[in-house]
């Protein structure tokens, strides 16, 4: 009888510990690195040689999602995935693409222009907050093209959007990752198909 009570007490302690551990675990920040691959665009190349400059803000871009009480909830790192995307898209868009470390790179003198993308805003909508059955990601970019001397040739804003439906066995992290990949593909499609239609870019291309 006494041993039975002892066993029950032990079980209760184990359950209490598990409950505390799970509560503590749920209070921590979860880290998510956006992962995915991007296909090469099937488009006609523009006869230009372009240098690409990824600044540290883009390389290390991360977004922190806060809970309704202001607690840090999910940290989303998407810098590397953006670089993978541009590395897949740009060589399909231009005849020649080189990556440079900065405007003082000697390779700058051998190209027609330097392209430098930056992320201005990142927004996330989770089903638990919106009460919709989709994960949504919005990203706002500033695209800049400068000549060899650093003078602005074109400067425009591109927004991208991605969503993915909730599913029974889809974790929050996987849902965000899938929505972000759709948003990145959306960026690639609008950037590659509309590049020549941007008035400033069109004006610059006409001068070449």
């Amino acid at each position: 009888m006494r041993s039975k009570i002892k066993t029950q007490l032990l079980w209760s302690k184990v359950l209490a510990l598990l409950l505390v551990a799970s509560l503590m675990g749920s209070c921590g920040v979860s880290y998510l690195v956006i992962e995915g691959s991007f296909p090469t665009p099937n488009i006609n190349k523009i006869p230009l040689s372009m240098a690409i400059f990824y600044d540290d803000a883009l390389r290390e871009f991360s977004y922190m999602e806060y809970s309704e009480t202001g607690r840090e909830e999910i940290n989303i790192e998407s810098g590397e995935s953006h670089i993978r995307l541009f590395n897949a898209v740009l060589p399909a868009m231009f005849e020649e693409v080189i990556e440079i470390e900065g405007m003082d790179d000697p390779m700058v003198q051998e190209v027609d222009a330097v392209f430098s993308p930056t992320i201005e805003e990142f927004q996330l909508a989770l089903p638990e907050k919106t009460k919709l059955d989709v994960y949504e990601v919005w990203i706002k970019y500033n695209m800049r093209i400068v000549d060899r001397s650093g003078n602005s040739l074109a400067d425009w804003v591109v927004t991208s959007y991605g969503k993915t439906p909730t599913a029974t066995f889809l974790s929050v992290e996987d849902g965000i990752n899938q929505a972000a990949i759709v948003a990145l593909r959306d960026l690639a499609s609008s950037f590659s198909l509309n590049f020549s239609q941007i008035p400033e870019v069109q004006g610059w291309l006409n001068t070449l």
Binding site: F38, P39, T40, P41, N42, I43, N44, Y161, V182, R185, D186, A188, S189, S190, S192, L193
Partner: peptide, 24 residues
């Protein structure tokens, strides 16, 4: 890619004509 993404996919059968005008 990128012709059949949610924002770029043709919405009507007639839109295919414009799409197929792209040789690629």
């Amino acid at each position: 890619f990128p012709w059949f993404e949610p924002r770029t996919a043709p919405l009507r059968a007639g839109d295919l004509e414009q799409l197929l005008a792209e040789d690629v």
